[in-house]
């Protein structure tokens, strides 16, 4: 008997030794790389699977996608970029569409004079990576069903501000952690309607096309010279209702009824499909004052007022939400 146990023990040890060499199935590694302090996306970061020896670089949105055909369970993802400390993440710790943050490497910046690094950049409706990751609202198609437009009121500190960039957070329709690829939409700056206070005329418009699964879209409009005469204006997203921008989602299950010679019979639940449009925006909890509207039927602006309830001491407490849509200004 001891000989048998010994034999099994050797077999187990041998299997354990082999374990690092055992490969699992195909896997996609993707996500965005951000600056740890500013949360700006970093293009040109080299991303490598060290053992599989596969690599890629982040695109201009800091997005990378690496298809591992023979994933090694003990492999490591390495992120390197000039001016940043190298970061290593075990593939076992990888999460779908995760954000990776790189820390500035001051030792690589010798001879560079950094002045006023904490200078405040005016941002309206600022949101952080954490707001996207928290994913407070678990129904991806509500509150606006991604049909026509969404607009949020922006109040600049003074007139004649210049909008330099707009930032949009997006998520997947069917899998919140994986935005479903291609998206095209319009970003607008709209006037405030003097009578109703709702979004008015479109002042500036920019089309955005995204061909990857980025969750943070930082859109540079500095070259478009968007100067505002007023201190109040709306920032809007307009969904483009084209086939290539459609996404299929299932709605509430319904019952199928069948009429036969014997009468009407209930058969079974059935899916209800509908089309929504890219991008799916992100709602997150924020208690600050917020004026926003959405349009799900043409010409009909409705006040955005989504509250998310969390249980506090056994009682549901509603919290106000914001949409991950911000603007950076210069004066």
């Amino acid at each position: 008997m001891p000989a048998l146990i010994h034999k099994h023990l050797i077999a187990c040890i041998f299997a354990l030794l082999l374990l690092p060499c055992v490969s699992s199935a195909q896997k996609i590694f993707e996500g965005q790389v951000l600056d740890k302090e500013t949360e700006a996306t970093i293009p040109g970061v080299t991303v490598i699977l060290l053992k599989e020896k596969k690599g890629t670089q982040t695109n201009n949105r800091g997005y990378y996608k690496l298809l591992s055909t023979d994933t090694i369970a003990t492999d490591t993802l390495q992120f390197t970029s000039v001016g940043y400390k190298t970061l290593k993440i075990a593939v076992s710790a990888y999460e779908p569409n995760m954000f990776v943050t790189l820390e500035v490497d001051v030792t690589q910046l010798k001879g560079v004079t950094i002045t006023n690094s904490k200078k405040k950049i005016p941002q309206i409706h600022y949101f952080r990576m954490a707001n996207i990751k928290t994913n407070d609202h678990n129904n991806p198609t509500l509150p606006f069903d991604a049909q026509y437009m969404f607009a949020v009121l922006a109040k600049a500190e003074k007139k004649h501000s210049r909008i330099t960039s707009l930032k949009v957070g997006r998520r997947g329709f069917n899998d919140p952690n994986r935005p479903t690829g291609y998206a095209q939409f319009l970003l607008h700056i709209l006037s405030v309607d003097a009578t109703t206070g709702k979004p008015g005329q479109k002042i500036y418009t920019k089309q955005v096309i995204v061909e990857d699964n980025s969750m943070i879209l930082d859109i540079d409009v500095s070259a478009d010279n968007w100067v505002m005469d007023t201190d109040n204006f709306y920032i809007g997203v307009e969904w483009q209702r084209t086939p290539i921008n459609e996404r299929l989602v299932t709605g509430i299950d319904e019952i199928v009824w069948k009429t036969t010679a014997k009468g009407t019979q209930r058969l079974q639940d059935a899916p209800t499909y509908r089309m929504v449009y890219q991008p799916s925006l992100i709602a997150f909890i924020n208690g600050k004052k917020y004026t926003a509207y959405y349009m799900n039927t043409p010409g009909n602006w409705q006040r955005y007022n989504l509250k998310i309830s969390y249980m506090v001491m056994g009682t549901p407490v509603p919290y106000d939400t914001h949409i991950a849509l911000s603007a950076t200004l210069t004066y």
């Binding site: 899916p271 209800t272 499909y273």
Partner: peptide, 21 residues
């Protein structure tokens, strides 16, 4: 067949569609 049906975009006879997509 009725067992294979769904609706798009909402429940109405003329909006019947069939699985699989």
């Amino acid at each position: 067949t009725f067992e294979n049906a769904g609706y798009a975009p909402n429940r109405a006879e003329r909006n019947l569609v069939y699985k699989p997509t």
